[in-house]
Design a binder for these strands. Sequence first.
DNA 1: GCCAACGTTGGC
DNA 2: GCCAACGTTGGC
Length: 152
Amino acid sequence: MRYWLMKSEPGAFSIDDLASRPGQTEPWDGVRNYQARNMMRDEMKVGDPVFFYHSNCEVPGIVGIARIAREAYPDHTAFDPQHIHYDSGSDPANPRWLMVDVQFERKLKRTIPLSELKDRPELGGFALVRRGNRLSVMPVTQAQWEFILGLE
DNA sequence: GCCAACGTTGGC
DNA sequence: GCCAACGTTGGC
């Protein structure tokens, strides 16, 4: 089992949106980065815990916990010319992009802001706080996971 | 295969 | 809204 962090802009899809979905699950479509895709394809397993992170908003930070509910499968939004995540280079016979399903577990008691995570020397090696980081899906070590939960 | 131009991400 | 960082594209 591995731990993960996945980013979402709350204006597009928030932790509350996930909590209100039927079955509280959602396909995590729109990942268009090879490094993120490869991690989803090769390493994400059903049941893996995920930090749900709100990006590009008033207070960026970790807001909840989800779990992987379905392992990687083709992201069909890449095939739809009308879709915002359309990619003409993804062939349905050989899909370029994949998605997983996530399931809501719980909201944190409070948002743990990025600014606070950056202040913690214990998280110096965490990809999220490294300068210029743009990965929307990233691994979290068990030690990082437990430390962050301890901040809740 | 290099690298400039361009588009996107995402904090601030 | 600005802009730094960084990934991708495409001319050569």
